[in-house]
C-alpha cells in the first residue's frame, strides 16, 4: 500500500503554488495555505524533517537486547499498539516479533498536516545467543513498550560460576 500517497499532501505542489496565473480563486487558496501554515512554529525542527516523510511509511520498531543474572531481556518500542496487535513466537533460538500498526485514530474526513510516526506491518527476528528455556519465555506490554523475558537455562547459568583462585 502506498501509504504516503494517501496521507501526505505537499503544500508546495498545490495548484496555487504551481500556477503563475493570478486567478482570484488561486490567490484565495494561497491565502488558506498561508493561514494553515501559520498554526504552528515548532522549536524542534519540523521543517528539517519534512523531506523524510517518505521514510516514515515503512515501520521497523527499535529493539534493545539486554541481559541480567537470570536471563535475556528484549524490549521493542511499539507506541500506539497494544498486545492484540503483536505476535511473538520462539523457534530454534530465533525470537520472532510480528505485528501491524494501523491508522486507527484517524478518520477519513481529516486532513493530515504533518507525519513523523511510522505505520505498517513489520516483522523482526532476533537470534538469541544463549540457551534459553523456551517454555518460560514471558512477554508483556505496557505503555507502548513490548518486553520479552527469556530465562537462561540451568545449564547456561551453571557455566557462569566462580573459580577459586588458589595461592601458588
Amino acid at each position: 500500500m502506498a501509504l504516503r500517497d494517501l496521507v501526505i499532501r505537499n503544500r508546495n505542489s498545490s495548484p496555487a503554488e504551481r500556477s503563475s496565473l493570478n486567478h482570484p480563486f488561486e490567490s484565495f487558496q494561497r491565502e488558506i495555505d498561508r493561514v494553515f501554515n501559520g498554526f504552528f512554529t515548532d522549536f524542534g525542527g519540523f521543517k528539517s524533517d519534512f523531506f523524510n516523510l517518505g521514510r516514515a511509511s515503512s515501520f521497523s520498531p527499535r529493539i534493545d537486547v539486554s541481559e541480567d543474572k537470570t536471563g535475556i531481556n528484549i524490549a521493542a518500542e511499539l507506541p500506539g499498539m497494544n498486545e492484540k496487535d503483536i505476535e511473538v513466537s520462539f523457534k530454534d533460538g530465533q525470537l520472532l516479533i510480528k505485528g501491524e500498526k494501523t491508522h486507527d485514530e484517524k478518520k477519513e474526513s481529516e486532513d493530515v498536516y504533518h507525519v513523523e510516526r511510522s505505520y505498517g506491518s513489520f516483522q523482526r527476528s532476533i537470534r538469541v545467543p544463549e540457551e534459553v528455556e523456551a517454555d518460560r519465555i514471558e512477554a508483556s506490554f505496557k505503555n507502548g513498550l513490548l518486553k520479552i523475558k527469556l530465562p537462561k537455562s540451568e545449564k547456561e547459568r551453571e557455566q557462569v560460576r566462580k573459580l577459586e583462585v588458589k595461592s601458588a
Binding site: F36, E105, K106, E110, D111, H114, R117, G144
Partner: peptide, 21 residues
C-alpha cells in the same frame, strides 16, 4: 523529540506523539 503526527479537522488540530515507555 517525540515523533509527532498532526491531523487537522474542521474543528480542531489533533496531535499524536509517540512516547513509548
Amino acid at each position: 523529540l517525540p515523533a509527532t503526527d498532526i491531523v487537522e479537522t474542521e474543528q480542531e488540530l489533533l496531535l499524536y506523539m509517540d512516547m513509548p515507555g
